[in-house]
């Protein structure tokens, strides 16, 4: 049952609900945990956010077209192993980083080719490559973990630029680019057209297959980049990098108002979704000190948010 979007009057209302929720959570947090809202501590704690955030950009575009990419976590794992392997054999950080990004790109391109050329359902394709990429990473690395990449490299994750963490700066630049692409360029609008009605999009001359191919390839490349940042942050590269990330990223994107059936979603919405999840996590783990509670809260948040949206939009329509 696709979300038909409805009138202009409430086009942004999902984002509004999430923003209000976010403000409530922040208020609540500031009241419970003194010093929680200070910019300094927020920036310090934001380090865990950036890999997710980068993956979420690509995922938003894919879900807008009605697809899904379950393989991003596994792609991160494979890219990390390639990074470690190349670094330990050649000793060059530059070569290793390029290999890492190239691996992500190739993984994404394989997904894209299977989805667009063979017209397989994205869920099936990425379920297969989810197993395959992780499997190749595990088989190739044999459980070995690479580390000691040097301080210069860990600056990629730990360094800062004008007071903003470097990965954060990268993310903000990319997010701006993606948001402009999505809302201002014809190709961005094509994505919504594909998500609403793929057939109609095709008949109106949009090269659906080519766009799909490039979307999955981009998602793979972003996974490579996320993997690079992750490896820099922990200074270890092993096969289980990014395990379980795919579901968290999808949670953030859907929470941010992107319709899982396609045709609806925005980059600012995704950023709100990411922030809401991030702040909730921080609050729960800071105040109650419990990681288990965290996942319960986020799981319920996802279901309740989407349920509330469905109920309200149904009432509006009738």
């Amino acid at each position: 049952m696709p979300d038909t979007g409805g009138g202009r009057s409430y086009a942004w209302w999902h984002e509004t609900v999430i923003a209000v929720l976010l403000v409530i959570v922040l208020q609540f947090a500031g009241w419970l945990v003194p010093g929680f809202l200070k910019l300094q501590s927020q920036l310090l704690l934001s380090r865990q956010l950036w890999e997710f955030a980068i993956l979420a950009l690509g995922m938003t575009l894919i879900i807008i077209t009605g697809g899904i990419d379950l393989s991003v976590g596994s792609t991160m794992g494979l890219s990390a192993v390639v990074f470690g392997g190349v670094h330990s054999s050649s000793g060059s950080l530059m070569a290793a980083s390029l290999a890492c990004l190239a691996t992500g790109l190739c993984c994404g391109a394989v997904n894209g080719a299977l989805v667009s050329r063979l017209r397989l359902h994205p869920l099936i394709v990425t379920l297969a490559t989810f197993a395959a990429y992780r499997g190749i990473a595990e088989g190739w690395s044999q459980g070995h973990s690479y580390s000691r990449f040097g301080d210069a490299f860990s600056d990629l994750a730990r360094g800062s630029w004008l007071g903003v963490p470097l990965p954060g700066a990268i993310f903000v630049l990319m997010a701006t680019g993606f948001a402009v692409f999505l809302s201002k360029t014809p190709y961005g609008r094509f994505l919504y057209a594909i998500g609403h009605n793929e057939r109609a999009a095709k008949f109106s001359g949009i090269s659906v297959n080519r766009i799909r191919f490039w979307l999955y390839t981009t998602s793979g490349l972003l996974a490579g980049l996320a993997s690079l940042i992750y490896v820099a942050r922990f200074d270890t590269a092993q096969a289980d990098v990014g395990k379980g990330f795919e579901l968290d990223v999808i949670t953030a994107v859907v929470l941010g108002g992107t319709s899982i059936y396609g045709g609806r979603g925005t980059i600012p919405g995704t950023m709100l979704g990411l922030l809401l999840i991030h702040e909730t996590r921080l609050l729960v783990s800071r105040y109650w000190g419990s990681d288990e509670l965290r996942s319960i809260v986020i799981g319920c948040l996802l279901i309740v948010a989407v349920l509330a949206c469905q109920l309200v939009s149904r009432k509006r329509r009738s």
């Binding site: 579901l247 999808i250 949670t251 859907v254 899982i260 419990s290 990681d291 288990e292 509670l293 965290r294 996942s295 319960i296 809260v297 986020i298 799981g299 319920c300 948040l301 996802l302 279901i303 989407v306």
Partner: peptide
Amino acid sequence: IVTLGLLTALRGLTTL
């Protein structure tokens, strides 16, 4: 989405 939410929530409940 429902089962994705439950996937996360039930796992947390289990650990708890």
